[in-house]
Design a protein around this nucleic acid. Structure first.
Length: 193
DNA sequence: CGGCCGATTATCT
DNA sequence: GATAATCGGCCGG
């Protein structure tokens, strides 16, 4: 699911306005045996959404200040999720700039998991939102087709203390930076992204 | 560009 | 009481 979500459109309805962007980077976290996955400690209050039905959001708080968005990707009772690590903004830029003023409209604006949750006004209130229903206020639509050959696959980041083989598994997908730059110019010719 | 560091608090041991 | 699926600022190359 992680590579398949690349290119899909992530949409947030905020005060009646559409804030959206194409997903550009993802990471996979799968199962209690994956020592980088929160579910390594089993079913807890925090990990419960990952054990729930697929297609829902798993949004958690970390480092004392950041909210991170995941899509639950496996059946009930099977903990698995895809971390959304970056988007290419396409709708509601003005509002997103207001929500995330730092470095707004500059290079690297929304290329981090906590950056995009700021721009989309996401926090624990959206935890477990149905990502397949517009009624939830947070959902994923069809987007652009991104050929597999322009995807880069690398180890997941931010898990330096996790033992092997989990630390080095190639479970991070991103649009090739060169292709992303070209895409950005096509979609947002006037911006400085 | 890469590496180090401090911020700040929910969650789990 | 320790840790963390990060970020931004500051440093050096």
């Amino acid at each position: 699911m992680a590579p398949q979500l690349i290119g899909c459109r992530l949409v947030r309805l905020f005060n009646g306005e559409r804030l959206a962007g194409f997903i550009t980077e993802t990471e996979a976290y799968q199962g209690e045996e994956d020592l980088a996955c929160h579910a390594r400690v089993g079913l807890t209050t925090r990990t419960e959404p990952m054990y729930g039905p697929p297609g829902h959001a798993y949004i958690y708080f970390t480092y004392g200040m950041h909210w991170l968005l995941n899509a639950v990707t496996d059946g009930e009772g099977v903990p698995a999720a895809v971390l959304i690590r970056g988007i290419l903004p396409t709708e509601g830029l003005e509002k997103m700039e207001e929500l995330r003023p730092t470095l707004a409209q500059k290079k690297g604006w929304l290329d981090g998991p906590a950056k995009l949750t700021q721009a989309l006004a996401l926090d624990g209130k959206l935890n477990r939102a149905d990502l397949c229903s517009p009624d939830s206020g947070l959902f994923i639509e069809a987007g652009i087709s991104v050929p597999a050959e322009v995807l880069k696959v690398k180890p997941r980041v931010g898990i330096k203390t996790v033992p092997e083989p989990w630390r080095s598994l190639p479970w991070r997908w991103q649009i090739d930076p060169k292709v992303l730059q070209k895409l950005t110019k096509e979609l947002l010719p006037a911006s400085d992204l």
